[in-house]
Design a protein around this nucleic acid. Sequence first.
DNA 1: TCAAAGTGGAGGAGCAATCTCTACTTCGGC
DNA 2: GCCGAAGTAGAGATTGCTCCTCCACTTTGA
Lengths: 220, 220
Amino acid sequence: MSAPEKPLRRDAERNRQLILQAGRELFAERGLAVSLDDVAARAGVGVGTVYRRFPHREALVDALFEHRIDELVVNAEQALALDDPWESIVHLLEGYMELQAGDRSFGPVVLTDAHGRGGLDRARIKLKPVVDQIVLRAQGAGVLRSDFAPTDIPTIILMVSQVQNAARDVAPQVWRRQLAIVLDGLRPSRDGTREMGADAVDAMDVPQMMRAAFETPGKG
Amino acid sequence: MSAPEKPLRRDAERNRQLILQAGRELFAERGLAVSLDDVAARAGVGVGTVYRRFPHREALVDALFEHRIDELVVNAEQALALDDPWESIVHLLEGYMELQAGDRSFGPVVLTDAHGRGGLDRARIKLKPVVDQIVLRAQGAGVLRSDFAPTDIPTIILMVSQVQNAARDVAPQVWRRQLAIVLDGLRPSRDGTREMGADAVDAMDVPQMMRAAFETPGKG
DNA sequence: TCAAAGTGGAGGAGCAATCTCTACTTCGGC
DNA sequence: GCCGAAGTAGAGATTGCTCCTCCACTTTGA
């Protein structure tokens, strides 16, 4: 990754790690919209230090997401490697949501091309054929509704992510319910329902969920 | 509504209408985050005029959503009035989404308590028992999965709204697909699938949809 | 030991929204 | 058609951010 760089002085390297850790935490909690000043504060270093190490916010994002992107591709490939075509679909969607759980910045970075550079695009290019194959195979086997299209995958991911983000504070697992419902909706027909895997949102928490859904959702 | 107010001069009333119209359009297009300066510009009046008529942004929002709220309640009551318990669920969800279609500000105003005043809360208070009744009746009739909870209704609405908003520019009807999938997922069991009612997003448009999903989604 | 490397954080620059203020325009009752 | 009350435009003051620079100081390690 950062191979041909000349090594930093020991204190500098320590600070770099502190900044990365702070960035990881803050991005996960509040999304990409956090200021580098905030990152500096959380890391316990001065802003100047952050800017010396990461000239743009992009640079920090890149450093943080370098390896997370690969996890995405691995997940899709694992899914495709499964014998059962339906379980491929389940693994693809569930695996994505698991990767994203607890990190408010994951979606914006991974799903749009507005952050980071080549690495992401490369991942996306790798991903598409794998996803297409998973979908086609499942339809061929008659376990996925025939009117389903490959682009419904990102659309569904976007949809379930919204629940994941909005409910993060009140019911961090509810997305499993909605995903179960969606998965049941993807079958051509079925007898019985999929296990929901999480309790519903408490009625008292709905307002807070809605508030979270609509306030400064993470910028771009 | 605005009954005990003394009538405005003719030009003032005309401007008030221009401002309302401009607000309606801009809120629908860009969400609640638009500045009152922008509203003034679109209306073709000065900012001062806007602030004279609507001291806070709230006042403008209130005036605009006064009657839209009632539509919500009417929709739920219509749904409950249907004979078929399953069609009640369909009407409730589909009706809500239709009301919201094409208006980026509808969700934030209607689903959270961060805008407007009493009217909304009153509507919500009226709504809850109706929704509960619709859900219970459908479950009693065995047409809705038994592990479904009333709070899954707002959660699903939130989820499908995300698609509606993100795809507004590239595929304004796609939400019908995702709603069809979700509805199919709500049955205890079934044979065959619901008509999707719209084409999938074109693969080329996915990036734009994602961008729309994550850039300044309308504030709170 | 000391030059090179690194640091902190006050503060300047930029931006965008809110809201005020007043010289001017328009309305409409008489 | 006059004229005072009502209404208007929009420049700019105010506020509240974030980004990013700069340099006197500290730390490191050959």
